[in-house]
Amino acid sequence: MTRKHRPLLVAVVLTLIAALCTAGPSTAAPATFKHPGVLVDKAQLDFARQQVLAGAQPQTAAYNAMKASTYGALSYTPKPRAVVECGSNSNPNLGCSDERNDALAAYTHALLWYFTRDDRYAQKAIQIMDAWSAVLKDHTNSNAPLQTGWSGASFSRTGELIKHLYGGSWAQRTRFETMLRDVYLPEIRNGAGCKNGNWELIMTDAAIGIAVFLEDRAAFDKAVSLWRGRLPGYVYQTSDGAWPKAPSTCSSKDTREEIIDYWQGQSTFSNGLAQETCRDFGHTGWGLTAATHVAETAWHQGVNLYGEAGKRLTDGYYFHTRLENGAAVPANLCGGTVKKGLGPVTEIVYNHYHNRLNQQMPTTLAYTQSKRPAGANYFFAWETLTHADNPR
């Protein structure tokens, strides 16, 4: 080897070493499932618990907010029903709010048990899950798939924590598993077609959580496939072409005009724009965080969807948090006016890309800090507690 070639060889070797050292889980499907591994794993919970025991922030403030919430009251009473009927905008609302709230309360109590080791909290989580598994038979009306996603996401996380961490009795666990398999999964596993993208991403969030909890490999692979087919149809990158791609479950959107209509009339596209940006930031935040939830659960199972997403996820959050933080709205975006209100949806994505991978995301960080401690709403809960500054 000549002396002039040595610097090139050294550079190549260093690049390979860096890649090996920073590589996350592979993109192959898991041979076996890791438990607990729906959104949060034991190492993350142990770290967060130690932070709370030490009085460290922001975890302690997040824990105190969780414990003081109505979802964390030991007097909480579930309101199950056999058929949950949810129309557009939850009208009619026959059990819709009750089911969502009960699922969030169950997850809250599962977390409270882990942090306090007070069995009353675990038994309350079990009581809520058992109440629903005793009676629920169906979700009906136009919002049924979305409602199933909202509630199924929280219920799968609850079941995962109780099944794999709590050593006490759960006599009706099989009945709860049957409910998730027979009532929830069929409603969400095939995606949402041409509905707004937050639907399918929320449904996929629930589907992958249920798949891990049930150790259903086919359902897991199906959820991953839905995510891979939807995310490029939800968050735009210039590498996609002159206009966004259609989601894989929405084959009818195959012209530029149809895509523009689907993207709320937006005809100018830039990195990070979302399919619902010009609808409102609230629904966009749901879509982005649901996509992140899927990637986080997959990460715990050894599937690196975060890596597949490349800059798509971080650009999506940057695009919207920049505007939330006060940047001027461009005249060519949504007619120069946007409806803000992204919500507390950035803890997990910031934790992965910054705390695990050391990417600098100052705009997302500023927004994240302004929303701490993140609470509970619809299908996400207490993520400052479980994921803030937690690279495990």
Rank of each mutant, 00 (worst) to 15 (best):
T140Y: 02
R81S: 09
H109L: 14
R312W: 02
A19W: 08
A295K: 01
E296V: 07
P145E: 05
G341S: 09
F213G: 02
N190P: 00
A18D: 11
S267V: 01
G241I: 04
V338H: 13
G37L: 03
L185N: 03
R49Q: 11
T70G: 13
A290W: 03
L288N: 07
E187Y: 00
M66I: 03
T27H: 06
G209I: 05
D98C: 01
L39E: 09
V224C: 05
S225D: 06
V10Q: 13
L39M: 09
E177H: 06
S267M: 00
V40D: 06
K245E: 00
L305D: 03
H283I: 08
A28G: 07
T346L: 07
V12E: 13
N91F: 03
F155T: 04
I126L: 09
Q57C: 08
G326S: 08
A73W: 04
T289H: 15
P30Q: 07
R356C: 12
W199F: 07
V349T: 11
W382F: 12
W299L: 12
N64L: 13
K371D: 07
V13C: 15
L146T: 07
L231T: 07
V12I: 11
H35W: 00
T2D: 08
G316V: 01
E276H: 10
P186I: 01
T368D: 15
F115W: 14
G272R: 03
P330I: 05
T2L: 09
A207G: 10
Y71T: 08
Q237F: 02
D138M: 03
E257Q: 10
A23G: 05
K163F: 00
S133N: 14
N377T: 13
P58R: 15
D240A: 04
T148H: 02
A218P: 01
R372P: 06
M361T: 06
K79S: 13
F47I: 01
S252E: 06
A61R: 15
K339E: 07
C278P: 10
R181K: 07
L357R: 13
L185S: 06
T238H: 06
N93S: 11
N332Q: 11
V84G: 01
T22K: 02
G375W: 13
L165E: 11
Y367V: 03
A11W: 12
W227Q: 06
S370V: 15
L14F: 07
A65S: 15
N196H: 09
G341R: 14
A328S: 14
G302E: 06
V135E: 07
L146Y: 07
A388P: 10
R279H: 11
Q127Y: 03
E347H: 15
H387F: 12
H320I: 03
R322K: 13
W286G: 12
T368Q: 15
G272Q: 00
E160F: 01
R6E: 08
N196E: 06
P362D: 08
K253Q: 09
A134R: 14
A223H: 05
D41F: 01
A19F: 08
R120L: 14
T249H: 06
L8R: 12
T60M: 12
N355F: 11
A246P: 04
S270I: 15
T27C: 05
F155K: 06
Y353W: 11
